[in-house]
Amino acid sequence: MTDDDSKFPSELADRFQVRMPPGMRDRIKAAAEANNRSMNAEIVATLEKEYPEPKPEAPEFDRIYALMSHIHAAETEEEQDIRMREANMVLDAANAPIRLQFSAERDYQGKRQIFMAMGPLGAIRRR
């Protein structure tokens, strides 16, 4: 058992000392009380809003859903096939581990359903 195993997570977290202008500590304390959290939690929450974690490099799901909607909006199955190939080319260009495919099932309008197939890069290839 190491020394770190016996410590609380808060004792292992990065620490950073900040000099605040007069009155700021009181404003943070008031905001923390209003939000029912500690001053530390209030500061971290404020920093998370201003400095969110970077987004992953793979296309975001809203972009993928937009591609799926574009395919689904095609009037003919031939046009759907063309849009499916184009969408998968976009995903390939972004090195996304996601491929779009048609399901054997159809939706309420009789159109083929689209789903995402996920796997390691290069594991799913166009046929």
Rank of each mutant, 00 (worst) to 15 (best):
31 A>Y: 02
49 K>D: 10
38 S>V: 08
35 N>Q: 15
52 P>N: 11
33 E>M: 01
32 A>V: 00
49 K>P: 12
26 D>N: 04
13 A>D: 03
25 R>W: 07
27 R>P: 10
35 N>L: 09
39 M>G: 11
23 G>Y: 01
12 L>T: 02
35 N>A: 01
11 E>S: 03
51 Y>D: 11
42 E>Y: 08
38 S>K: 00
27 R>F: 02
46 T>G: 12
32 A>K: 00
38 S>M: 04
20 M>F: 15
12 L>S: 02
31 A>R: 02
20 M>Q: 08
28 I>N: 01
31 A>S: 07
49 K>M: 10
52 P>S: 14
32 A>Q: 00
11 E>D: 10
27 R>L: 15
9 P>W: 10
8 F>W: 09
47 L>Q: 05
42 E>A: 04
32 A>T: 01
15 R>N: 07
27 R>N: 04
48 E>S: 11
51 Y>I: 15
45 A>G: 07
48 E>L: 13
22 P>A: 08
40 N>Y: 14
25 R>P: 03
8 F>D: 15
9 P>R: 05
12 L>Q: 08
21 P>K: 12
18 V>Q: 00
42 E>V: 02
49 K>T: 15
27 R>E: 07
30 A>N: 06
23 G>S: 09
15 R>G: 04
16 F>H: 07
9 P>H: 06
25 R>M: 04
46 T>P: 05
15 R>F: 06
13 A>P: 04
41 A>Q: 13
46 T>Q: 13
27 R>V: 13
26 D>P: 05
20 M>L: 15
34 A>H: 01
35 N>C: 11
